[in-house]
């Protein structure tokens, strides 16, 4: 029953259109702060989104407050009804746990806000409520810590008891953001293509139609491929952004990477690696070469640690037919 009630709550929140305006106001404000303090620049973004981590940073950090505050709840319960001296030990430990949770929650708040600003409609509304609930809980736990420090443990326990259900509900909504709306997951269409098409070099465009610095979208075996000529060399990547599926061919080039027009994720043209987030996953790579004045592409199989001799390794090592001497040259 509780499960259905929570799911209904989630759907209800997703339908609240009036949340869009405060959401955008918050985003504008945060954007300004980020731009004034240079937080929108590459290294900071990389850190806050968790690109260096290979996984969104926010969900990992949320374990700190949830774990610490659960610990505090356990310690509070255990301390109750004990003798005075023993109780003091529990109280001290509970205070530390609450304090650690507050610090962790601040980190989760910053990373969460940074991820949230690049979400769309339903996820955006859900994320706003998730953040607001957590902000209230953080306030309650900060108050709890303060009261505990001044030896007013009764009030401290009360504040923690009020905050805990909020954290629990909000955690559920946060789960919805990941599992229902796939925030932080790899959403690139090409990655979803398990057949890894096109397996063999497929002609897609006349080489003279691709101009230096102007990204283009082509299709090969029904797969959208982005073609970019940069410094004379032709690069090919998956055309939809792994973050929310933005059209990379409508983006622009910045310092040797292609930038998604929607949320500014930059991908290295050579490796497809994400440079700054919000996209964490790399853009799928394709090989490109020019034959008879036409650009041909094929999918680069993802490098996985498959045991030697396995089907996958063989597929990667298989020569491209017809066998010709080294097919590396990609220059026109």
């Amino acid at each position: 029953m509780a499960q259905h009630a929570l799911e209904r709550l989630m759907r209800k929140i997703e339908g609240q259109e009036w949340l869009d305006r405060p959401g955008h106001t918050l985003e504008h404000g945060y954007a300004f702060v980020q731009n004034v303090f240079g937080l929108s620049q590459r290294p900071v973004r990389r850190f806050l989104h968790g690109v260096w981590f290979g996984h969104p940073l926010h969900p990992a950090l949320t374990d700190v407050p949830i774990g610490s505050w659960t610990t505090a709840l356990v310690l509070d319960t255990m301390g109750a009804g004990k003798g005075r001296r023993e109780r003091e030990g529990y109280q001290r430990a509970a205070r530390r746990a609450v304090g650690l949770g507050v610090v962790g929650a601040l980190g989760a708040a910053v990373t969460g806000l940074t991820d949230w600003q690049y979400t769309h409609d339903y996820a955006r509304r859900l994320g706003l409520v998730h953040g607001a609930l957590n902000a209230v809980a953080l306030g309650l736990y900060t108050w709890s810590w303060w009261e505990r420090r001044r030896e007013r443990h009764g009030r401290g326990r009360l504040a923690a008891m009020l905050g805990y259900p909020l954290v629990a509900v909000s955690g559920y909504l946060g789960g919805g953001l990941t599992f229902r709306h796939l925030v932080g997951a790899d959403q690139s269409e090409q990655e979803a293509d398990r057949l890894l098409q096109p397996r063999d070099f497929t002609p897609v465009l006349r080489a003279n139609e691709l101009q230096e610095g102007t990204p283009r979208r082509v299709e090969a075996c029904g797969v959208g491929v982005l073609l970019v000529r940069s410094n004379g060399q032709i690069h090919a990547l998956g055309e939809t952004c792994p973050h929310l599926g933005g059209p990379l061919s409508q983006g622009w080039l910045r310092d040797g990477s292609i930038v998604c027009p929607w949320h500014g994720s930059a991908f290295d043209l050579e490796t497809g690696e994400s440079q700054n987030g919000p996209a964490i996953a790399p853009a799928p790579r394709f090989q490109a070469r020019v034959r008879d004045g036409r650009i041909e592409v094929r999918r680069v199989p993802p490098v996985v640690s498959a045991p030697p001799g396995s089907a996958l390794t063989r597929q990667q090592e298989m020569p491209v037919q017809p066998p010709r001497p080294r097919q590396r040259e990609m220059q026109p």
Binding site: H24, H120, W262
Partner: peptide
């Protein structure tokens, strides 16, 4: 429309 909103954000950042 969400894409359009996001693109405005990109313009704001680039302007900065």
């Amino acid at each position: 429309l969400d894409a359009a909103w996001s693109e405005h954000r990109q313009m704001t950042d680039q302007l900065a």
